[in-house]
Design a protein around this nucleic acid. Sequence first.
DNA 1: ACCTGAACACCGTTCAAGT
DNA 2: ACCTGAACACCGTTCAAGT
Lengths: 192, 192
Amino acid sequence: MTTMRTQADTSEQIMAAARSMVQARGYNALSFRDVAASVGVKSASVHYHFPTKGDLAAALARRYTEEGMDYLDTLLARGEDYRACLARYVAIFRRALEDGNRMCLCGIMAAENEDLPAAVRAEVAAFTNANVAWLTGLLAGRRPGTSPELARARGAAIYAAVAGAQLVARGRNDIAVYDAIMGAFADTGLFD
Amino acid sequence: MTTMRTQADTSEQIMAAARSMVQARGYNALSFRDVAASVGVKSASVHYHFPTKGDLAAALARRYTEEGMDYLDTLLARGEDYRACLARYVAIFRRALEDGNRMCLCGIMAAENEDLPAAVRAEVAAFTNANVAWLTGLLAGRRPGTSPELARARGAAIYAAVAGAQLVARGRNDIAVYDAIMGAFADTGLFD
DNA sequence: ACCTGAACACCGTTCAAGT
DNA sequence: ACCTGAACACCGTTCAAGT
């Protein structure tokens, strides 16, 4: 029998604190001293676990993508229909707004693209690609006849719609704006 | 006969340099020392013209909104039809990507919402509101029967579509992605 | 293995001092 | 009216030093 683990590793606590901060204020506003204070260590200790801010942000984005894709894969495995899967997808981005008017971790960092170290930029791109690929796959099942190019463009459009709606609703600090926008997209047939 | 003005005021040069920097890297990455170096003064001089970073960013956003709305109003005055006006609108956000993979000034600052001084946040919200109102007005002319709520939701959806597509295409550093996404939206009838 | 204090060059901001 | 150098408390990062 191994030792009980009653407390998260320092690395895990750092990642949890940092993730919450980035989703609220972005990569540039992430402060090693703030993270350290929130965890109860000094900022130099954070550098022991994550040598640079880029290393920390890249780790955050990689895990964020993994966890998100795991959830999306369980959605497919559950055998729910096309519309139900899309509704769950739209609900994921709504949840970030519910959680203190936050954004998707990679959505907010995408806006900071030019400021990101290359490794972080790559992880953000990987998140976007994974999301568009999942949506494209879902669409392919729905419309077997469509060309790959058109299916991918539509997958990207759904991702852009959700990301854009999140951005606009967040600026208004009003979840009803997110719902109204997604309703308008639904009316145009974006989810049919 | 008054004195010739062969050079822009220092304030104007500061705003031009700062605007370009914010559209490329955001509010947080805007540096008074970088702006000063680009204009040829010291950072303390920038504070003479714009006491705080918030004052500078608020002035940038206010003028950006004014200039943008002036252009949109000339579009309407030209008497072009609904589709042509929307095509011009979509082209505005494309142009930022053409200009060094930049973003809409207020779009990128919207992502930084939580970091913005209140005055800047208000200007960013005013830009969004003005854009949605313009789109809503355009839609009202096109579909006189629609309820104000639905027209506004659809106006917000078009704005979110454009902002989201810009964000996604910028992350890929590929204008073709913007065009493909807008094409997919057009296919769903978002612009009909 | 993990943490820390001290130092470095950056940042926005302030202010007394210059012209 | 406009600009500046110097100082302040911040920042990410490094590193020698501690346990």
